[in-house]
Design a protein around this nucleic acid. Sequence first.
DNA 1: CGGTTTTGGTCATCCAGCCGACATTTGCTT
DNA 2: AAGCAAATGTCGGCTGGATGACCAAAACCG
Lengths: 226, 226
Amino acid sequence: MNLETKYWHLHNHKLMNVLSSNELKEICLITNFKTAKKGEIIYFSHDESNRVYTLKRGTIKIVEIDAKGNEIVKDILQEGDLFGQFTLTNQTLDEYAVAVSDYVTCCSFRMDDFEQIIERNPALALRYTKWMGFRLKRLENRYANLVFKDVRTRLIEFLKDWASKEGTNSNDETILKNYLTHQDIASLICSTRQTVTSLFNDLKEKGVLDYTRTEIIIKNDALLAL
Amino acid sequence: MNLETKYWHLHNHKLMNVLSSNELKEICLITNFKTAKKGEIIYFSHDESNRVYTLKRGTIKIVEIDAKGNEIVKDILQEGDLFGQFTLTNQTLDEYAVAVSDYVTCCSFRMDDFEQIIERNPALALRYTKWMGFRLKRLENRYANLVFKDVRTRLIEFLKDWASKEGTNSNDETILKNYLTHQDIASLICSTRQTVTSLFNDLKEKGVLDYTRTEIIIKNDALLAL
DNA sequence: CGGTTTTGGTCATCCAGCCGACATTTGCTT
DNA sequence: AAGCAAATGTCGGCTGGATGACCAAAACCG
């Protein structure tokens, strides 16, 4: 990938648009780009040196493999999100990122380099800290949900959240492009495939939603009432 | 509290020791100090404007009250730790900090002011981001524990962690000053009082530990073997 | 189009640990 | 020292939801 393209990618990035052109050029030099198609693996936790990744286009999921070989979906990320190692402590056993949408582009730089740039660019630093604070809150929220709410409620909150982020509204319905399997959803809300399936059918029966393998159609009123 | 004392407090603070004297003085001017005795409440989430707090001395717990009026211990914090609001999204209903040890000192500043200082001081920014990354990892870890491990294991991990942070070693035993009730521990590991009590007794029976209301004595080998 | 893999659907079984209820112990207060 | 509130102990009943097993329907692919 040539410098101009790199520059363009970075220039349009949420996190980066506080930087001056010179600084952007500087970052370009230390940035790697990667593209991937659906299903391809983008990064491993035990890869090379600590890197920070940021997603330019598409959707990915962060997956971890547990002792029994099960795939645990830890997070779904979208354009503008950051991922990778944030600290020195590399405790995660087997974590990687998989492309979920058709075409995914992401850039990465070595943590050290990024830190140097932060050190010289306070506006970027501030933005980065805010972003991390946001992440923290999000995780805290998820944690609280897990403790206080039952599976049914967690699924409903998950759907609300998803719909508000990616749904296309038409009339009183929201349509979601469904790129997640029941298994994926289950591990996002910490449950099992079977439970998710039967909850989905229960909700369908109650007229809250309708779905096929590629789409979920949500009746807005009915969902919000829950 | 006079300026010299303030200055001294900040000067000895983990987070702040990258700052020059001038910068420290600057922070002094925007910093409030508070002291509290055991049981006193230090901060409310719906207090005034967004503030960041940092603990100078002592131990506190962050507590949340749920819908049913139960006290949920969200975190135990110690010297050098930061707490308070980190982002704009103030969703927590009823969260506050309670002094657990006898004497607690903490300082706070308005988030806005802190941000301005960060903006002018990249080294502080970097340190702050690293600290947040650490928090994130910790929470992620807790989250993973909750999903994958049963209550017994969570309690054991909790004890190991606690012992390594605060335990005083003598021979093959570790002694912990126990300022937490079974109820507190229960909510930290997401369980119930009763379960914690019976697990404690089970561990005592098995010779892993011994305890009174003020002390926990852990047999190092036995605990590590679990 | 046939065969294979992946995803979704359904059911019976089972158990960790929550919950309520109550007894006992400890420590604090006046 | 008496009284009281908070913390600890113990038990049995109950249930959300995990687990495993098996089948049906799509999707994928040569």
